[in-house]
């Protein structure tokens, strides 16, 4: 049985269809990559899985741990074990990174009489952010690109989800941070045995993760899936447009073969 089961999923935003029939199955402990050109619906798919109300599921099935997710709101989906690291998380003025980390990890609110910062600093250290500088910073406010990605990971680690959806954890990140992020995700995944769905444009981060399957998304559909080691070099050499053209040629060849 799959951890996440998506069948014929269609999603609209403001009455415009964005996801046009997606099938996706992720089993426990698997790492899947989702690739595709900009604005093809990758993030929309992730947000629809997370339960953002603006992303309306019009058709299809969405199940997690064999539970129909359509009846659950964002909070209960998160509590079921879904977690997401955002590509560009919003700035939340006044909410301290420390407070959100403690709340996620289930510790009581911080009290200034406490000598130690407790669990929050552990997660901040884990992603190599400076504890002194980041504990009492407002969430994402004035964070650099790399700092945002790390703070997203720290929150996700505190949450300990069964399925991590990582939306471009590698975009806008320098080479050192990339290495660190890749290694941390890999380590955490191995320790926790959680499943991962990673959205990315580059193969660099995949060096650290060894994904099981790669899905190619185009215009709201998953048009191909297969071994990442075959698919990714192919896309890198011809680009998405070229890749799609070839796919269409293949389809036509199949049709010709079938009907003569």
């Amino acid at each position: 049985m799959s951890l996440l089961e998506i069948k014929g999923l269609r999603v609209t935003v403001d009455k415009r269809e964005i996801i046009k029939g997606v099938d996706l199955n992720i089993s426990k402990g698997e790492i899947h990559v989702l690739m595709g050109p900009n604005a093809c619906g990758k993030t929309s798919l992730a947000l629809a899985i997370m339960g953002y109300p603006t992303y309306k599921i019009t058709k299809g099935e969405l199940r997690f741990k064999d539970i129909d997710l359509r009846k659950h709101d964002i909070t209960s989906r998160a509590r079921l074990g879904l977690g997401m690291a955002y590509q560009s998380p919003p700035e939340v003025r006044g909410v301290k990174l420390r407070d959100i980390l403690r709340l996620i990890a289930g510790s009581p609110p911080w009290n200034p009489t406490e000598e130690k910062e407790g669990i929050a600093s552990r997660y901040i250290e884990k992603v190599r952010l400076s504890v002194d500088r980041f504990l009492s910073r407002d969430l994402n406010l004035g964070f650099s690109g790399g700092e945002r990605k790390r703070s997203e990971l720290a929150q996700l680690f505190a949450q300990r989800p069964d399925l991590m959806i990582l939306d471009e954890p590698d975009s806008g990140v320098d080479i050192d941070s990339l290495k660190l992020i890749g290694k941390e995700i890999d380590e955490f995944q191995k320790e926790e045995g959680c499943a991962v769905l990673i959205i990315t444009h580059h193969r660099h981060i995949l060096q650290y993760l060894r994904p099981n399957l790669c899905h190619i998304m185009y215009d709201g559909r998953i048009v191909d899936r297969g071994d990442p080691d075959c698919l990714i070099p192919c896309i890198e050499s011809v680009g998405y447009e070229g890749f799609i053209e070839r796919l269409q040629v293949c389809e036509r060849v199949k049709e010709v073969e079938k009907y003569g």
Binding site: M84, L103, Q155
Partner: peptide, 29 residues
């Protein structure tokens, strides 16, 4: 409160009320 901020905190497992209260508290702090 911007929906974006609310949903963001809810996707970490906070209820809507917890998220609202956290943002409002931060706003006044």
């Amino acid at each position: 409160i911007a929906d974006e901020e609310l949903y963001y905190l809810m996707s970490r497992g906070l209820t809507e009320n917890e998220a609202t209260s956290m943002i409002a508290r931060g706003f006044l702090d």
